[in-house]
Nucleic acid binder design. Structure first.
Lengths: 347, 347
DNA sequence: AAGCATAATTGGAACGTTCCAATACTGTCA
DNA sequence: TGACAGTATTGGAACGTTCCAATTATGCTT
């Protein structure tokens, strides 16, 4: 049993043929006679041969390892979990396997991961960059010809392909929705200005306010980690502002859920006493109580698209960076409540 | 730039030394002079050398690829997401990378994944077997000497290491808790009898009822997928039973959340009108409304333990299967409500 | 039956590393 | 100075595959 592993030579011997022929059938070449092919396949089955992809990759020019790397920030956030599942689906059915790791928003760990994946010869990488990532962090990778898709979070200045949702459009719609309900003091909660998504999303928010003739009050734009805990923190600070907001657009759903938690802890009912809208439309947004009004981006679909984009780039090795923006759609549920009386006063 | 990759020979030439010496410093050998080591490291940096782990693995006896495989059922379930994060933590800091994929409860896809990972030469596997997995499905893997840790879901008859939570103990405590609140009609919701966890968890439930002198009513044990959707389905059927249950122990938290959804859809408030307790204590159990009473298993810790167990087995290649059971703890929150009047009648 | 095109097969070299045994350097001591 | 013990370094061979050019087998045409 501990007889060193079965190699292509063993099965060549068993099938009475040369290793080259075996290699040909492994690659599905059409120029090997039906009968020999069968004999070889039988031997493969009998001897319990397992293909050594490492050896193959080593020999092959262009090192097509059939491995792709995926780095996200936080698998625990179901946005990223679903994104990963979407990627997994298309990648699996293309015969690839994925290294999947989270860098926990830590650029150093991110670099280590990239390095490690590179040593293993990944043939492509999908990454949601951690806060504070520089475009130059991917330079080595890119110049070695490995296709990279930057997903979800923009990375200004990168030559890699990017797959972003229409962030500004989304928050603009969300803000307009709150405005139409009569809100005038609307906060923006979560995120930090060193991540590009933050800029894009606050951009849409500012635009909508400006268009409505409302002065943006920077006191209402509150930085906090983009997690549930960050949401709790943010709403706490928002409610401490002298002239309290009555509604909030949140950086993402995780923050929005935290905001709801924080409101309840203060005996305020989200949807009734304070309107909140999220961003992402993660799976539990629909079933949470109150159901979350949010900007839907279909994370799983986004994962599928990212993977497709990467595979396309791997196969046609003309690695021309492509920038794709995916559409979003405001989904109104309960957490934004109904129109408030401010509006009636205006009518 | 497209100058084929930089190899150990290139840096040997640059440092005026032989490839063997370079290899030695790559492996951190102590028997190379300080000065030469520095010269070599400098060359490595200057030429932008990246280690080819595939080639190394090919040569090395025992094929220590520094890759481990992880297969879970559903990354979207935060129990598994956290488990994966736990694994990731220890695996990363041991210098490994992980293939992480979900098999979506599909044994065929699971086999494909195992095959694919094997071709890539994983040096170990952590798996939460899909429903209907046979112990024999891992035979090939095991006999090729690759350590396997079966986590979360038991697989009777396997020779691999197993890491299970104290399932029966947990559901027994959960059921006793509901009994102590006065419930007498207690359902068990979710899961199927072809998964070992189901047997173990219903076992604890049955024991508790029996000990309390209550006849187990099989009508109240309801099979359904172990997902949020499955929970919705299960509670629907439970409430259709002639003599309605007043409480339920659920297979896991995902099911429990689904049960809460289903109750609300029928204008019943979980915690007040119907008591529900989950299993897992996923991260949102604490913050959900109502907060979920559940059996805490610390999924992330379990992931860490699984990874540690696997690494131990990889390093000491005496692959003696080890069976570890991790303790659980009932966490009483809101979803199980307070004592109901049935109890007062009895008092 | 010879010639020829095509189909099927094959032997080595190569991929980038590690391992092993062997060699080349040190310096020390008689 | 020559022998000796370390210490540092080194050339191949090997890992399991694919690629290439070359060979052999097959069938068809005249």
């Amino acid at each position: 049993m501990a007889e060193g592993r079965v190699t292509v030579i063993d099965i060549a011997r068993a099938a009475g043929v040369s290793k080259s022929t075996v290699s040909l059938v492994l690659q599905g070449s059409s120029s090997v006679k039906e009968e020999t092919r069968n004999r070889i396949n039988a031997a493969i089955r009998d001897l319990g041969y397992v293909y050594n992809r490492g050896a193959a990759t080593l020999r092959q020019t262009g090192s097509r390892s059939k491995i792709i790397g995926v780095i996200v920030n936080d698998l625990t956030n179901s946005f990223f979990a679903e994104l990963a599942v979407g990627i997994d689906m298309v990648v699996q059915s293309a015969g690839y396997v994925q290294f999947l790791s989270s860098c926990a928003e830590n650029p150093d760990r991110q670099q280590e991961l990239i390095g490690s994946m590179r040593e293993h010869g990944i043939s492509g990488l999908i990454i949601c960059p951690a806060r504070g990532t520089q475009a130059s962090d991917f330079k080595a990778l890119e110049s070695s010809g490995i296709p990279v898709v930057v997903a979800v979070r923009n990375l200004p200045g990168t030559k890699a392909s990017t797959l972003m949702s229409a962030n500004a459009v989304g928050t603009r719609a969300a803000t307009q929705h709150l405005l139409s309900l009569g809100h005038r003091r609307i906060a923006f909660l979560g995120g930090f200005s060193d991540m590009a998504v933050f800029d894009e999303r606050t951009g849409g928010y500012r635009d909508a306010l400006r268009e409505a003739g409302i002065q943006v009050d920077d006191e209402l734009v509150i930085n906090a980690p983009s997690s549930r805990a960050g949401g709790v923190e943010a709403i706490g600070r928002a409610l401490a502002v002298a002239e309290r907001p009555t509604a909030a657009v949140c950086l993402n759903d995780a923050v929005a859920f935290g905001v709801c938690d924080g409101l309840r802890a203060r005996r305020l009912e989200p949807g009734a006493d304070f309107a909140v809208v999220g961003f992402d439309d993660v799976i539990e947004a629909k079933t949470a109580v109150p159901a979350l009004t949010t900007v839907s981006v279909d994370p799983q679909g986004m994962g599928r698209r990212a993977a497709t984009l990467l595979l396309k780039q791997i196969n046609s090795n003309s690695s021309e960076g492509e920038a794709v923006t995916t559409a979003v759609r405001l989904v109104v549920r309960e957490s934004s409540g109904k129109a408030i009386n401010v509006r009636q006063e205006m009518a």
